[in-house]
């Protein structure tokens, strides 16, 4: 299907958010689901939704290679060739306090989550490499959510990792739950911390993807040892996984 670009934003250097007319989209996306976007090359790029409002859907991405550079060069009025919404998103908020933990380009689907569940009691913990990569902070602020922030280089918020913020939050909220999205090492640490704290967690993964529909078996992540599945497909089994599926019951 083709969706028209109605607005193009540059939230930070090397980051672009495209807002697309959602009227061609078959169904309303869930936070954590993605669009599989044609980018002029052989493969599409999976990009998770950053927001839905006023009949528009957003995709926010960092320019990292030829595909995202092509996409960043699109202008308002042009159409994108997309498939989706695809994949399994984040579940509704469980009872009790909930932390959204985002790293870098893992932040956008968590903003969409906050948009979808305006009445949830949410803590928002965000981290990135540097100030530039810490996107959507103002969007959370405009919804009355004031994220705890950190950067690897200390250029904004605390110096350190977002998982340091999570460790503090978990010790104060022993009955909390976590929705996390970010790079694999961050999610690995989120899994360890939440397992130790006996708190449920859902993790949104990124992986190099082929078909997007479960056919090519390219975008796999390893399943928990002994849990029956060697691999899960990020495109159709994920991108969001309950922690137990990938890490089992023992701390990784």
């Amino acid at each position: 299907m083709r969706l028209t670009i109605v607005e193009r934003r540059v939230p930070a250097s090397d980051h672009v958010e495209l807002l697309l007319d959602a009227s061609g989209l078959g169904r309303r996306p869930e936070p954590g689901q993605f669009l599989h976007v044609a980018t002029g090359g052989t493969l599409r790029r999976p990009l998770s939704f950053s927001r839905v409002d006023d009949g528009r859907v957003g995709i926010l991405f960092r320019v990292v290679g030829a595909g995202t550079a092509w996409l960043a060069g699109r202008a308002v009025g042009e159409d994108l060739d997309v498939m989706g919404p695809l994949g399994r998103g984040f579940p509704p908020p469980p009872p009790g306090p909930l932390a959204l933990v985002g790293g870098g380009v893992g932040i956008p689907p968590l903003f969409f989550y906050a948009q979808c569940w305006p009445d949830a009691s949410l803590a928002v913990l965000l981290g990135a490499r540097d100030r530039e990569a810490l996107v959507m902070v103002d969007d959370f602020g405009a919804r009355g959510l004031h994220p705890a922030l950190c950067t690897d280089d200390g250029s904004f918020g605390r110096r350190g990792r977002v998982t340091d913020l999570l460790a503090t939050w978990l010790s104060a909220h022993p009955h909390g739950s976590v929705m996390a999205c970010g790079p694999a090492p961050m999610l690995h640490e989120v899994a360890r911390l939440t397992t130790d704290a006996h708190c449920p967690a859902w993790l949104g993964f990124e992986q190099r993807m082929g078909c997007g529909v479960g056919a090519c078996l390219a975008c796999v992540v390893p399943g928990a040892p002994g849990a029956g599945r060697t691999w899960y497909r990020v495109c159709t089994d994920g991108p969001v996984f309950a922690r137990e599926m990938l890490y089992g019951e023992a701390p990784p």
């Binding site: 090359g41 052989t42 493969l43 992986q207 190099r208 993807m209 090519c216 078996l217 060697t230 691999w231």
Partner: peptide
């Protein structure tokens, strides 16, 4: 079980894959 990821990589006018016949 196939090969470890990453299993695909885009190349000029092409695609490299190493799924490993999972």
């Amino acid at each position: 079980s196939g090969n470890p990821p990453p299993r695909v990589w885009e190349t000029p006018s092409g695609l490299l894959n190493s799924i490993g016949l999972q």
